[in-house]
Amino acid sequence: MKNKIKVLRAEQDWSQEALAKRLGVSRQAINALERGKHSPSLQLAFDIAHVFSVDITDVFIPEVSELPVTEE
Rank of each mutant, 00 (worst) to 15 (best):
M1G: 15
M1V: 15
M1R: 09
M1K: 10
M1L: 09
K2G: 00
K2C: 01
I5Q: 02
I5T: 01
I5P: 05
K6Y: 01
K6V: 07
V7D: 03
L8C: 02
L8K: 09
L8A: 01
R9H: 04
A10K: 12
A10N: 11
Q12W: 00
Q12P: 08
D13S: 14
D13A: 14
D13H: 15
W14V: 05
W14A: 00
S15P: 04
Q16W: 02
A18E: 10
L19G: 04
A20T: 06
A20S: 07
K21V: 01
K21I: 03
G24M: 02
G24F: 02
S26R: 01
S26P: 12
R27Y: 02
A29R: 05
A29Q: 11
A29Y: 11
A29T: 10
A32K: 15
A32C: 04
A32L: 11
L33K: 05
L33F: 04
L33R: 05
E34A: 07
K37S: 06
K37R: 14
S39I: 08
P40Y: 02
P40A: 05
P40F: 04
S41I: 09
L42K: 10
L44Y: 03
L44A: 02
A45C: 06
F46T: 11
F46S: 13
F46N: 12
D47P: 11
I48Q: 03
I48P: 06
I48K: 06
I48E: 00
A49Y: 07
A49P: 06
V51L: 09
S53R: 14
S53T: 14
D55S: 15
I56R: 06
I56H: 03
T57L: 11
T57Y: 13
T57R: 15
F60P: 01
I61S: 09
P62V: 13
P62Y: 11
L67H: 12
L67Y: 09
L67N: 13
P68N: 10
P68W: 00
P68T: 11
P68I: 08
V69C: 00
V69P: 00
T70V: 14
E71N: 14
E71T: 14
E72Y: 14
